[in-house]
Write a protein that binds this DNA or RNA. Structure first.
Lengths: 375, 375
DNA sequence: GTGAAAGCGCTAACAA
DNA sequence: TTGTTAGCGCTTTCAC
């Protein structure tokens, strides 16, 4: 009794026992907690039936059970506040109903939208979501994939760094349902849900050209490993070529986003190429810097320089002038990825290896029109 | 052989078997997959030792093991590409190393920052993160909490809807480590990591007042269940009272964000109170609408109306004029929540029931200065 | 230094 | 209609 109180007192004060004593205490506490956990056996004995029957009833297999026993069991479960242990269930059934998702960048609001799509779909379909953030680091990505495998997730949604082909291959071979999003990883028996980046880029540049721009530059971020990078560049080039420009006319600025001097680089670039009258910016984070650069040079949008930016954002329409953007169906991408993944989890004969391509859309605002009439 | 090829052919074509046949196939596939899974027993037999020894070695208990056997085991594990089953491990040890997090709003970039803090910390400390989104729905919140309990997560980070006090109480009583973030839920033996919203609001309004504003209004979002709502309102009132204003001078607009006509309501409000020369906006989403409203009325920021907004965002400095904001340490909040939660998981005597309060900061830009000189 | 055996909480084939 | 029993893959006493 005394000990009890003393322990409790110390406990309340948050006192830390010396290691060994603390360990003993912890073990003791653990044991107590475990003893308090109510299992299916407790429900069974309380209801006076076997564990099997309880399991059956609780899983909705009433078909061969008396209404009376069913009620007894349900009551017992409620009274004991029984909550089944998903771990044990999963260990037995080899099904966790968990989906693992590897993101590479939490900062960009685009990914929040995607995440929302995945999360919503998981919930609707009875899955839980485990997420982690590779931060574009292939080593971290690899570690997380292993982690997911150990945890026996039912499937993985992966925004690949695209620098771990060996791992992706192994993963696909392991038959663990897998879907790549946003970035293409070809030739694997895995689902792909991606955007049509060539089209998006082409649309953007076409729009600039149609508005009378004659020297359209592209500002590219710095990840040439990934398909959207290649495709947006390609789209830019295609648009120019289709409008009778030559490869010599390509005006490409590749910036290192990590370094944080995008603005400086842009100013430099614009000074070296004063003929530029339009910029296609390939992502929303870049765009902010580009706009700053333009303003800092005393140029005006859209009069001096028109701009179209990839990625619609909440703030695009509130900028001055309101920004013309390429919107991508991020939420849809998330939903489709999750839904298809779950399909292939629940039906192993579900068609795998297919690629779903989503269409971006041009949202016209005021950052391209009203070009300064040339002399 | 023939069957094999046929099945394979159909499989590749994504043909769906009739239900019963499909079930048989799936069961077959499942069995094959399970047979292929390499367990600790496989490693043991390959290395010619018992499971016990393998377990010991793989968990770093070399102390009583020959270097030779250790190597044999390590090699066997590598050759078989053995990956331990975390489910079984957890079932036995009653420890999942999973933290569950309930968010209420994925759309607001503030939460992405918090999530990042939590995620980073979990990774560093060897935990995985399971997230879900209550969308401010208490029923969903309740369901997710139950889900987490069934999954035996080691702890929960909760952004409470604040409408489930009964559940919170039960959760706290269950001794499952728990931390509330951002919104206070008092009197429970759970950690709280929150912001000083009174101070943030007071700072914002003080700033407006110091810049010569005389009629400062507040635009409040519509969730009066939650502590930040009360505290921001309180901060606004305190600031006015401390500057010799009377309660009659309070100018409060409460808007229903869901309905989506914040802009309209704001315009209405401004028309009814034309003397207003400053607005304190209580969250970043609201602010956009308020700014639109002001612009639409032909008023100019900051000349006619000054504005300070809660929540710093990437776009605040790019607006015209650049927005003065209250920055909140969201990333820090995430980190602290996770770190303290994990502390209390790993040391049950860790002080519980404490509240950590983080300080917001005023970021001064140009949306308050240059007031129109009054006649 | 190593292994046999029990058991974490649950499900499901097979009996009764 | 219900119960017995044998595991799922792992850790951990307790022997040897």
């Amino acid at each position: 009794m005394l000990t009890d109180i003393r322990i409790k007192g110390i406990f309340l004060l948050g006192y830390r026992f010396p290691k060994t004593v603390a360990n003993k205490r912890n073990k003791f506490i653990k044991k107590m907690v475990m003893a308090m956990k109510v299992t299916i056996a407790d429900v069974a004995s309380k209801a006076g039936v076997s564990k099997t029957t309880v399991s059956r009833v609780l899983n909705g297999n009433f078909s061969h059970t008396t209404e009376a026993t069913k009620q007894r069991i349900l009551n017992a479960a409620k009274e004991l506040d029984y909550s089944p242990n998903a771990l044990a269930k999963s260990l037995k059934s080899m099904k966790t109903n968990i989906i693992g998702m590897v993101l590479s960048n939490l900062k960009n609001p685009f990914w929040t939208t995607v995440l929302e799509g995945v999360e919503d779909t998981c919930r609707e379909l009875g899955y839980n979501l485990m997420i982690c953030n590779s931060n574009e680091d292939p080593t971290v990505e690899e570690q997380f994939i292993k982690e997911f495998q150990m945890r026996q997730v039912d499937g993985i949604v992966l925004h690949p760094t695209a620098q771990n082909n060996h791992i992706y291959q192994k993963l696909a071979d392991s038959k663990l349902p897998l879907v790549f999003i946003n970035r293409r990883v070809g030739d694997l028996s895995a689902l792909n849900v991606v955007m049509d980046n060539v089209k998006g880029a082409k649309t953007a540049v076409d729009h600039l050209l149609k508005n009378g721009r004659e020297k359209v530059a592209v500002v590219l971020y710095d990840n040439r490993f990934v398909s959207p990078w290649r495709e947006r560049k390609e789209g830019y080039q295609k648009a120019l070529l289709a409008n009778n420009f030559m490869p010599e006319d390509f005006l490409v600025l590749e910036v290192d986003q990590q370094k944080g001097n995008v603005k400086k680089e842009t100013i430099q670039f614009l000074k070296e190429n004063p003929e530029i009258d339009a910029i296609f910016s390939t992502n929303n984070m870049l765009t902010m810097e580009v706009i700053e650069a333009i303003k800092e040079m005393g140029l005006e949008i859209p009069v001096d320089i028109g701009i179209v930016s990839y990625d619609e954002t909440v703030w695009a329409r509130h900028l001055t002038p309101p920004l013309t953007t390429i919107w991508q169906p991020g939420y849809e991408m998330g939903r489709l990825a999750a839904r298809n993944l779950i399909n292939s989890i629940e039906d192993p004969s579900f068609q795998t290896g297919q690629t779903i391509i989503l269409e971006p859309q041009l949202i016209v605002r005021e950052s391209c029109g009203n070009i300064k009439s040339k002399v």
